[in-house]
Computed example of a mutant assay.
Amino acid sequence: MRDLKTRQFAKAEPIYFAGDTGVRLMKVVSGAVMVFQIFEDGRRQITDFVTPGELLHFDFDGAVDHYAEALTEVELIQIEASAALTDPDWADYIFKQMRERLGRERKHVALLGCKSAAERLAEFLIIVSERLTSPVGDLELPMTRQQIADYTGLTIETVSRLFSRWTRERRLIPTGRRTYRIEGALAA
């Protein structure tokens, strides 16, 4: 499809803001993007991390209702939504992406609503291990503890306390500045 445009973003660079027009679909080629809401009182809720091969949003016309920021250096492919919707391969891809995102969002709602602080953070670390790093069990955390708190619905103090406890107990082994290895059951 010839309507593809490539864009690069530096770490922490905004990709779009709530209220921006969503006429272009954006697919992550490399890097990771965090998608989030900002509440009237200034609090932020990170709702998802978008990784290579995934679309940032599904707003084909009108305004997007959330923010997107590069979590790492990011390369995106952009395509006009109208062109994507008329291409059968892109339409199938968009539908598949919607199903996958809906599944992740259901899991995130369950994480926020039904789990203890330790269970939330443990599940978050497993999600990061599966989606942002490899092999599973090794973690490279490109986000800050505040960003982790904003995803898990915890305070930064709770996140820091759990990291410290799990490190002391050797369940989470630091292997670098922002890298860890999971050595045992975290939420126990």
Rank of each mutant, 00 (worst) to 15 (best):
H108L: 12
G103V: 06
L102H: 13
E105R: 13
L121P: 00
Y93K: 12
R101G: 09
R101W: 13
C114E: 10
A118V: 07
Q97R: 13
H108R: 15
R131S: 07
V109E: 01
L112W: 07
G103L: 02
S116K: 09
H108W: 15
R99P: 02
E123F: 09
C114H: 09
V128Q: 04
A122V: 05
G103T: 10
C114G: 06
A118H: 05
G113L: 07
E130C: 04
I94T: 02
E130A: 05
A118W: 01
I127T: 09
I127K: 05
D92T: 14
K96Q: 15
V128N: 01
V109P: 00
L125R: 04
A118G: 01
R99N: 13
I94R: 09
E105F: 13
E105Q: 15
L121Q: 01
S116F: 03
E105H: 14
Y93T: 09
E130V: 09
A118R: 05
V109D: 00
R131G: 02
V128R: 03
A110M: 08
C114Q: 10
L111S: 07
F124D: 05
E123H: 12
G103F: 11
R99I: 15
E123L: 13
E130P: 02
R106A: 09
R101H: 14
S129K: 00
R101T: 12
S116Y: 04
I127H: 06
M98R: 10
L112D: 03
S129D: 00
L121H: 04
L121W: 05
E105S: 13
H108P: 06
R101F: 11
V109R: 01
G113A: 09
R106P: 00
D92L: 12
L125E: 03
L132I: 05
F95Q: 14
A122H: 01
L102M: 11
R99W: 08
D92F: 09
D92I: 11
L132F: 01
R104M: 12
V128I: 07
K107R: 15
C114N: 08
V109G: 00
A118D: 06
E130D: 12
R131K: 09
H108E: 08
E100H: 13
F95T: 14
I126Q: 11
S129T: 05
V109I: 13
K96V: 10
I126W: 06
K107S: 14
S116H: 03
L112K: 09
A117D: 10
A110S: 11
R101M: 13
A122L: 03
Y93W: 12
V109F: 03
S116T: 15
R106H: 06
G103W: 10
Y93Q: 14
C114K: 10
V128F: 01
K115H: 10
L125V: 02
E119D: 11
E105T: 12
V109C: 00
E130K: 10
